[in-house]
């Protein structure tokens, strides 16, 4: 998939090189300042030499999480906890959304931003609610900037977020293996390994990936301290991020934040391998659709009318 002649990829590597240069400059400056800020120097160094997530030992993780927590404390004055709950045995997550029930109120969109520490300015949102024309599944004719009150006559509403595909084009597009699908079906990003080439973003037929053009901007009071290494921890500038079904919540047995925020009960979530789960009940009793079936991505996100 990676093409060394590709200008976008070349730019990404160039940016990576520049980051490396500015890192060395920063490291050198810190060194020149003597031992004044030893902690900052070693944090910089450790971030720089950090391994790919999949090769980290539990001990590595402890050290890295402590470093990241200290960095948030230093930069934002907030005490956060970064955890990395492992996938659950016998669990494959799936989502179903009732398009008859959704009223387009955007409670999910906002709850997601709060839970996942997405940048407020510029606004980064993992999920968008499309206002659709009644009787048509044509996404091209939908709108996102609609105002209330909702539901407006002649329309239905379709929230779109990462569809957690079984055959994820984003994963195949990544030239450095910085994004992959976990055993429980959640596609994640190693934010420390991502080089920001945005191939994955272009490959996603659902426009579900977001790129941090600038340093994500959050007030200390807006930072959710309950963080997952592969999900909602504070992301650096220049990396790609996306919905993870709130991995840090769902692997603890909780529901994703978007589901809890929904006032109409349009959102159903659970273990696809458990016939009693709500999402399986939907699959077994309702006619379900997947978005852009022609793309062959085989999403774990289903839509239904009721």
């Amino acid at each position: 998939m990676s093409d060394p002649e590709d200008p976008a990829l070349a730019r990404a590597f160039e940016r990576a090189r520049l980051t490396r240069r500015s890192f060395l400059a920063a490291f050198g400056a810190a060194a020149a300042a003597g031992c004044a800020d030893r902690a900052e120097r070693s944090a910089l160094w450790e971030a720089f030499v950090q391994q790919h997530y999949k090769r980290l030992t539990e001990d590595d993780k402890r050290v890295i999480f402590a470093r990241l927590e200290a960095e948030v404390r230093r930069r934002h004055g907030v005490q956060v906890t970064i955890a990395d709950p492992a996938p659950l045995r016998g669990v494959e997550f799936g989502y179903a959304l009732n398009l008859s029930a959704c009223v387009g109120c955007r409670r999910c969109e906002h709850a997601c931003a709060v839970e996942n520490n997405t940048s407020r300015d510029p606004t980064v949102r993992y999920l968008k609610v499309l206002q659709m024309e009644s009787g048509s599944m044509d996404v091209e004719r939908s709108r996102v900037g609609y105002q209330g009150p909702v539901p407006a006559a002649g329309h239905f509403y379709m929230p779109v977020q990462c569809q957690q595909c079984r055959d994820a084009p984003c994963v195949r597009a990544c030239p450095v293996g910085a994004t992959w699908t976990e055993p429980d079906g959640i596609t994640v990003v190693d934010y420390n390994w991502c080089i920001g080439c945005r191939y994955c973003e272009a490959a996603c037929p659902y426009f579900a990936r977001r790129f941090n053009f600038s340093e994500p901007d959050l007030r200390p009071s807006e930072i959710n301290p309950d963080q997952g290494y592969l999900s909602n921890r504070l992301r650096p500038v220049g990396v790609v991020e996306k919905c993870t079904f709130c991995l840090h919540r769902v692997r603890r047995g909780e529901y994703p934040a978007c589901l809890e925020a929904c006032p109409t009960g349009a959102r159903k979530f659970g273990n696809l391998l458990d016939p009693a789960s709500e999402v399986r009940q939907v699959l077994d009793h309702k006619r379900v659709y997947v978005l852009h079936e022609d793309a062959g991505t085989s999403p774990r996100f289903y839509y239904f009318f009721d």
Binding site: V103, P122, K128, P149, P263
Partner: peptide, 18 residues
Amino acid sequence: MFNPLPPADHDRAYGGGA
């Protein structure tokens, strides 16, 4: 009926397209 929470700024700016 519900009052929707505000759209993202760029969504409002672009208005139409999804």
